[in-house]
Design a protein around this nucleic acid. Sequence first.
DNA 1: CACTCAACCAAGCAAGTGCTTGGTAGGGTA
DNA 2: TACCCTACCAAGCACTTGCTTGGTTGAGTG
Lengths: 208, 208
Amino acid sequence: MPEQAGGAAASTAGASRREELLRIAADLFATKGFRNTTVRDIADAAGILSGSLYHHFDSKESMVDELMRTFQAELFAAYDDILASPDDARSKLERAVRLSFETIERRGAEVAIFQNEAATLGQLERFGYLAERNRQSRDVWVSLLTEGVETGALRADLDITLTYRFIRDTVWVAVRWYRPGGPHTTTAVADQYLTILLDGIAKDHDHA
Amino acid sequence: MPEQAGGAAASTAGASRREELLRIAADLFATKGFRNTTVRDIADAAGILSGSLYHHFDSKESMVDELMRTFQAELFAAYDDILASPDDARSKLERAVRLSFETIERRGAEVAIFQNEAATLGQLERFGYLAERNRQSRDVWVSLLTEGVETGALRADLDITLTYRFIRDTVWVAVRWYRPGGPHTTTAVADQYLTILLDGIAKDHDHA
DNA sequence: CACTCAACCAAGCAAGTGCTTGGTAGGGTA
DNA sequence: TACCCTACCAAGCACTTGCTTGGTTGAGTG
């Protein structure tokens, strides 16, 4: 009788049922939005009834909560790795950029959810850590850029704050159009962006 | 008796009540999202009851529809101006970038709504023109970039499609953080972005 | 003065929403 | 055999949501 199986159920074999449901929810949150996704949507996609979700999770809210917490923990561990490395500023900046595009590939749903829902969810006390993570992230980029300017690797006339925002916007909003398995690899995308970011799109006449 | 006036009512004096309500709705759609904004939210902000909105509009959906149609018409008229100008490719590209940031200042709510809801709304037949406008916009940027490469103003090794996406993402997503009356003018923001986009953030050692 | 009309109110309906409650099936374990 | 535990079902409650309907008000207009 339980041979319904809506759609994306039998994918992750070894994972627990709970993780399986979380992934289904993540994909729906990412594509339809959190508020716009009903518990019945999630249940349908999993092939169960909506009430059965509450055997695994306290609430719909705690599903995003768990998704965001684990995602942020993973991401900032990677940031820490970069910051702790002995590389020069330019190399670390490059690594940070590449990390973003790779994260979009590996954790696309989580990135999309964070991009689209952080402002709304952040108003709830429970999700206060999202704003805190935002500050942390800004500090990472600003310190890398500042170090780059101070060591002479980057131009001295940059507005660090604006530059940070431009970079952050571009590397994360790419989640809207980047598709794993599509025409571009994350490496190709990162290469092209780093080329533009570092040297610009204008033809350098003085070199020709 | 009608001295309720929730909040942002008595702003546009000469405007008709209808336009006033549209603006209130636009601000709410932009900050809370379309689906996440209820007709009661809009009515409260206008100081009336939710049912009274239906004296002015057919539905909540037709409110966004009207907002998006007039916005797109205005924006693409400006694009056409740029395309029709006799300037060289680099100047036209600069104008297109500046136009985006200025549009964020003048029509911030509409830009935010389009950025956040186009994917969701676009699935409805009624909003099919949003996808069409997206294609038009891409064509504008791609043709400007292509002309730039062909005339030698831009580097020949650019991936036009990726470059287009990077530029589009950065100039439009700025609506998330740019605040009119804040620390930066649109001109300052556009100047800084054009500097980075054209010449990059790396220090050019060959010039020193 | 009779009439019109834009703008609104008061009340409520039908559909959808998150979540609860009490129960069941079936595999493992003492 | 008796027990337990995970994963689920069936039904429904309380609330929110977009929208409808019939009526009211007050500023005009012939």
